[in-house]
Design a protein around this nucleic acid. Structure first.
Lengths: 233, 233
DNA sequence: TTGGATTATAAGTATATACATAAAAACCTG
DNA sequence: CAGGTTTTTATGTATATACTTATAATCCAA
C-alpha cells in the first residue's frame, strides 16, 4: 500500500472521503485504526485523528473509543444554518428595518407555552407581540413569551428601540436553543398582521432558548408569504 | 492574571465563552492572541488553538491570520440539522414506509430547473414524481428532475423498490448540496396527492445536489400538513 | 502620493511523545 | 454460566517544538 503523499489532514480527509465514495469502505465497515492509517499515509497519528474527527463531526464516520471507526450506516448529511437576528437579515438585503410592538402585557400563558418555559401554573409571564417590517412591508411577526424571572430588567426595558430578541441577545446570554420549522395556514389574524390573504401558506419558526438555570423565552415567528430559508453543504 | 487551571481545551473554551457572555470581551473586540492566552491559562498553545477554533467554527469568534481573533460582531448562532433519507425518518418513528412512483418520463424541464441543473436548452431530463407514505398515509411527495448524464444507469434502474433518493445516495456520491425551506399553499394538485384540503399551508424543501462535474438532481419535497423539522443547539 | 516590495506577526498545521479514558474483550470466581 | 473484575486497546487529549502561510503593516521608490 503506502503510496501517495498524505501529509496534511485535508489530504488525508480527501483520501478517506474518496474511499468512502468509491465504496472501498462501505457503510457499516470498520476502517483501519488511526495508528495503521498513520503508517499507511506516512504521517503522524494526530494528523489522521484531525481528519477522522472532522469527518465524524460532519456525520460520515462513527467513532467510539476502543471499538474503532466505522463508516456511518446512514450517512446523515448535516446542514448548518445560520439563525440570524431579523434586523441583520433585513439590513443585509439592503432593505430598511423597522419594528412595531403590537402588544405587551403580563399574562398567564396557555399550557403549551407554560410547559416549554417550565413555569408553575398561575405564574404570569411577559407576552409580547411584535411586527418586523422590511422597507415598510410586513416581514415577520413574533408572538413571544418571556420568563421575567430569567430576565431581570425586562419589565422596565425599552423594547421599542431594540426588538425583544436583540435586547435579549445583548443582555441575557443563552446556552441552548430549540428550533422547529413548519408551515401553517394564514388565519384571519395572520392575514391582518402580515397583510396577506387568509389561507396562504406561511413559514413558521418556533424557538425556545435557555441558559443554565432557566428557559428564557419561547417565540413563534410567522413569516410573510415568500420567505425562504437557505443553506448549503 | 494566571489564576485557575485551564488544562483542557474544553475548560479553555468554557472560560472564553464566559468572558464573552460576561461582556469582558465584547462583540468586535480583539482578544489576546494564542500565545498570550496559553501563558495566561497555563497550557499549551495547541490547546488554546483547539478551543478557539471550535468557537470560531460555531460562529462566536472571527479569526484571521496575522490579524488575530475577535468576538464575532453579530454572533450568529449556527444550528445543524440532519437531512435524513425519508424512509429512515419514517421508520425511525416506528411507522411503516412505502413509496409510489406517480410518474416517470423523459422530458424537457422548465427553465428554472434547467438553470439549476445547468443543462443546455432542449436537453431531456428524467422527471420523476413520487409519493412517500407513512403507515399508508401520504407523508411527502417529491417532484424530481435528474440529469441522466450525471447518473449513468438511471434509465434502467428499478426505482420502485428503492426510492430515487435512496438509489442516488447509494450509487452516485455527491459532494455538495443546496437546500431551501419555505411554505406554500396547497393547490388542487397538492391537495389531491397529499389528501389534504386546498389552501392548506405546506412545508417545502427544495434541494439540489452536485458532485465535482455535474449537478445531479433537483427535487422539491412537499410535505403533508403537520410536518415539522426540528433541531437544537 | 501611490503602488509595489518587504517584513513582521498571528493563526494554521505537522510531529513525537506521553498519558487519559471509555469500553470491548478476556478472565476469573462462586 | 451468570455476574463481576481485570486487561487490553482504540480513540481522546496535552505538550513542546518547528515550520508554513496569509496578511496587516511598513518601507521605499517612482
Amino acid at each position: 500500500m503506502s503510496g501517495g503523499e498524505f501529509n496534511s489532514w485535508q489530504t488525508v480527509q480527501a483520501e478517506v472521503l474518496r474511499r468512502i465514495n468509491a465504496r472501498e469502505w462501505k457503510p457499516g465497515d470498520f476502517i483501519p485504526n488511526e495508528a495503521e492509517l498513520s503508517i499507511e499515509f506516512g504521517c503522524a497519528r494526530a494528523t489522521v485523528n484531525r481528519a477522522l474527527r472532522n469527518l465524524a463531526d460532519s456525520g460520515l464516520l462513527d467513532r467510539r473509543r476502543k471499538a474503532g471507526t466505522r463508516v456511518a450506516l446512514h450517512p446523515v448529511r448535516k446542514a448548518t444554518l445560520d439563525i440570524p437576528v431579523i434586523r441583520y437579515e433585513i439590513e443585509g438585503k439592503g432593505q430598511t428595518y423597522r419594528h412595531i410592538v403590537l402588544s405587551r402585557q403580563m399574562g398567564i400563558p396557555p399550557s403549551g407555552i407554560r410547559a416549554r418555559l417550565q413555569t408553575e401554573p398561575g405564574v404570569k409571564l411577559l407576552h409580547l407581540v411584535t411586527l418586523h417590517l422590511a422597507d415598510g412591508k410586513p416581514y415577520v411577526f413574533g408572538d413571544r413569551w418571556i420568563n421575567p424571572e430569567a430576565v431581570p430588567g425586562i419589565e422596565t426595558a425599552d423594547l421599542t428601540a431594540k426588538s425583544a430578541n436583540e435586547w435579549l441577545v445583548l443582555n441575557i446570554p443563552f446556552e441552548g436553543g430549540d428550533f422547529s420549522f413548519s408551515a401553517m395556514t394564514a388565519g384571519q389574524r395572520e392575514a391582518e398582521i402580515l397583510a396577506c390573504k387568509e389561507g396562504e401558506g406561511l413559514f413558521v419558526i418556533d424557538r425556545s432558548t435557555w441558559n443554565k438555570t432557566h428557559v428564557i423565552t419561547s417565540v413563534r415567528l410567522t413569516f410573510a408569504p415568500g420567505y425562504r430559508m437557505h443553506t448549503e453543504i
